[in-house]
Each structure stands twice: as C-alpha cells, then as structure tokens.
Write a protein that binds this DNA or RNA. Structure first.
Lengths: 233, 233
DNA sequence: CGTGACAAATAAGTCTGACTTTTTGTCTCC
DNA sequence: GGAGACAAAAAGTCAGACTTATTTGTCACG
C-alpha cells in the first residue's frame, strides 16, 4: 500500500517525496518544474500538481523566476501522514520513530484519562475485547495477531478521548507500533507486563477511573521509551 | 496576512477551504471541477491544483466519473496549519480552541521537562528574557506586549525540547494564545499567578530540574483549560 | 425475475502549445 | 559606484483536444 497511488502526479510524489524528506536536496536547492517534468516523463500540468502538494506540506516553496526551492527541515509539516510515511521509509527512520514515540508518551496518557470520562459503553467493550485479544496472542510467536489488537486498542483509546486532535493520531501510533514490531523482526513474545497494563487500562476506562487510566498508560509509554533507550533519569 | 496568498489557486483556496472546513458541504457532497472553475472564474488547470491541495489535506477525494467528494470531518488532517487557521476563522472556532488547548495540556508539560534537559544556554537566556518581558507587561493593559512575550516563551520551550514534533506546534500555540487574548477583547490584566509560573518554569529549565519544569507547566495548562471551562473533577 | 455482459455516458485525468507576469541580474549612464 | 532601464528566465495562466476509468443503464439469456 504505497498510499498516494492515485493518478500520475501521485506516482511522481512517490519518488520525489521520499527523496526530499530523505534530505537528498539540501535546503535552498532549486528544482525546475520543466526539468522535473522531463525527468519523470510527465506533462508540466501534472508536475505542477505534484509541486502544489509538496508546497502544501511545506516541503518546498515555488517562486517565480527562481524555481521550486526546498525548505529547511524545520519548516516541514511533520504531522502530515504522507510525510511521516516517507520519513519512516527513509534513512532517518530511527530518529522519526523516536520523535513519534516521545509524542505518544505525551499524548496517550492524557487521552486515556479523557477516555475514562468520555468513553461510550460500546467503546469500553471494544477496548476490553482488544485487551483480551492481546492476551490471547501474547505467547507463541503470534506477533502479527498481537500487533493487530495492540493497534486497535490504542486507536480506540485515542478516539474515545473525544478529542479530534488525539483521534487523528491513531494512524501515527499504528505506524509506530507496526514499525517497532517489524524492526525487532518478530522474534520474542511481547513483554507480559505490558500486556497486563493494557488489560488494566481497559478496566480503568470501564470504571471511569481517569487518574488510574492515565497513570497506567504512562507506564505503557515509558516502556515504549525504554525500548528505544530514551531515558528519563 | 491571509497566508495562502500566492497564486490564483491560493485565491481559490482562501474561499473554498473555509467553506469546506466550516462544514458547508456535508460529507459525501460532490463538487465538479468544471463548475468550480466556472464559479471562481479560473481555468481548469488552476482549479485542479487547488483540488490537489485540498486532497492532500484529506478534505476531499477526487475520483473519476464521480467528481470531488467531501470527506467526513474525522478524516481531515487537523494538524495542517492551513486547516487550523481556516477552522479558527470559522464557526467552530470555540470547539477548535478547546481541542487545541487540550492538546497543549498534553504536550507542553512534557516539552518543558525535555527542555530542562536539552535547552542550550542561549535558549535558557531567551526563556528568562521572555518571562521578564511578561512580568514587565503584566499590569496596565499592555496585553499586546504581554502576548508577544507569552507566545515567544512557549515557542522557545517547544523548540528547546529538542523534539521536532513538539517544535512544530509553536505556531499552533501562538494561534491559541492570540485567539484567547483577542476573544477576551483585551480587558483585564493577565492572571498574576500565571505570570509567576512562567518565571518559575524559566528557572526550573535553567536549573535543569525536569520534574519541576513539567509540573509547573502542567499548572499553566490547567489554568488554560479552566479558562475554557474544561474541568477535570 | 435475477443475472450477467455489453454499451454509452460522464467527469476526471492528461497533454500540448501559446501567452502573461513577476522577479532578478546585468548593463548602461550619470 | 549607485540608480534606473532593459532583457532573460522561470513560474503562472489559459484554452482546447484527447484519453481513460468508472458508473449506470439496458438488453438478452438463464
């Protein structure tokens, strides 16, 4: 699933986007639409559409008479799902994974606390189901099934928080969790302590215990930070 | 500063973007490029570029033979600065402000903790300077100057955290702070307690006391939540 | 009846070429 | 050496013809 797929301009973005986010063009580099159109063998109209998209991601800036200049990394819209995917697929994947994990550690505990207050009965049920699914797949190298429930669990928490900004991070968390599992090449079974914590979070949310849900989730994210050697001395 | 300015397609987005984010077209509505091009009196190429941008924000989806369909709000990329501005300028400004303030309450304390560990001497100096500036403008209806230093303060903290995802939220926080001040129509002087907290955060960061910086910042954000009647019973 | 295949309609997608506008660099001229 | 005029360069815009995918309707066949 390369995501952009649709249309010729998407094809162009599939290779130009990763190149830029990988830092292949240093900030300030100028690209010319005509040259790019030639390189990708597409018409200028298609190329312009691609540039517009890159521009809306703050990756480049198009100015008359000068060309399409690459913006410094600090200006990129790093919350754009597309940009995140490109960077996760590129060279600074480790750094990106660390940034996102720190972001998780800030967001998810608060989201869990809110979920304990706002979750519907249905969401509570889903949460419990996910936690049980994690337990069921926690032993015997069934990491694929485990991951599936893990992702679903965190997605439900974020949605149940009732905050749209949190809810929108579901995809990001999914990427991080998937990335982590794949990076460890699916060798060991997950940490039993983490499994227990998820079950307890589901409990806390069901019981409306916001403080406990928050604290337990904080423990989960601390574990995620430790996995990446991001210490908190 | 309407931001998009550049180019004809930007002009189109300046009116079409707010319309969509305001929910004027219910999810699933179909727009036709030709009709839009006529309506805005631009060529189809320009209209297509605008649609591409909206598409990259996940506001719409363009499909052959059917047209440009508006996506449900839950799929919008609510972290896109442009989308945030459009929504802040529209009808659901209060809701947007609440979402963003909750986001702040999750992010900023963690960012402050990280800043206490990673801030450079220069950043510590900036922080102290900002805090002093806030003190200097805290009495006598100098809300404009106060806001300026407040925004700068939070921006420095987010950057000093060393996390690119946090750093990128500087603009969002600026919008929220500005929005809040303007909404209260600049009547009263700021809460003296908040001013003190900012000074203390600067201290804690300078001394490398992460836990204290985090806790103090949490108090600041709790204050922001209370202002909007977002309770935490 | 329902079901499957085929044909027509439709709207986005693509390409091309000509033209406009803005910016910038340079080259005078004072 | 600075100021203003001039020329070149690249993005921006437009119009029109053509392509392609997708939907929808129809019609025959089971």
């Amino acid at each position: 699933m390369s995501t952009t797929g649709r249309g010729l301009h998407g094809r162009v973005l599939d290779t130009l986007g990763p190149e830029i986010t990988a830092g292949e063009y240093p900030p300030g580099s100028v690209l010319r639409t005509d040259e790019l159109a030639q390189r990708f063998d597409v018409s200028r109209s298609v190329m312009r559409e691609a540039v517009r998209v890159l521009e809306s991601m703050y990756l480049v800036e198009s100015r008359r008479r000068v060309g399409v200049t690459v913006r410094p990394k600090s200006e990129w819209n790093v919350y754009d799902p597309q940009v995140i995917r490109w960077r996760l697929a590129g060279a600074d994947r480790p750094g990106q994974l660390r940034s996102l994990t720190v972001l998780r550690s800030a967001i998810e505990p608060v989201a869990a606390g809110l979920a304990a207050r706002h979750a519907t009965a249905e969401q509570c049920a889903e949460l419990t189901e996910c936690a049980l699914g994690m337990v069921a797949h926690s032993r015997g190298h069934k990491l694929e099934g485990y991951l599936h429930h893990d992702v679903a669990f965190h997605r439900v928490v974020l949605i149940a928080s009732g905050n749209e900004m949190f809810a929108r991070l579901g995809d990001v968390v999914a990427e991080v969790l998937t990335g982590r599992t794949q990076h460890d090449v699916m060798f060991e079974d997950p940490d039993p302590a983490a499994v227990t914590l998820h079950v307890q979070v589901a409990e806390a949310v069901r019981e409306g215990d916001a403080a406990r849900a928050e604290e337990l989730t904080r423990e989960i994210t601390v574990g995620a930070l430790q996995e990446l050697d991001i210490l908190a001395p």
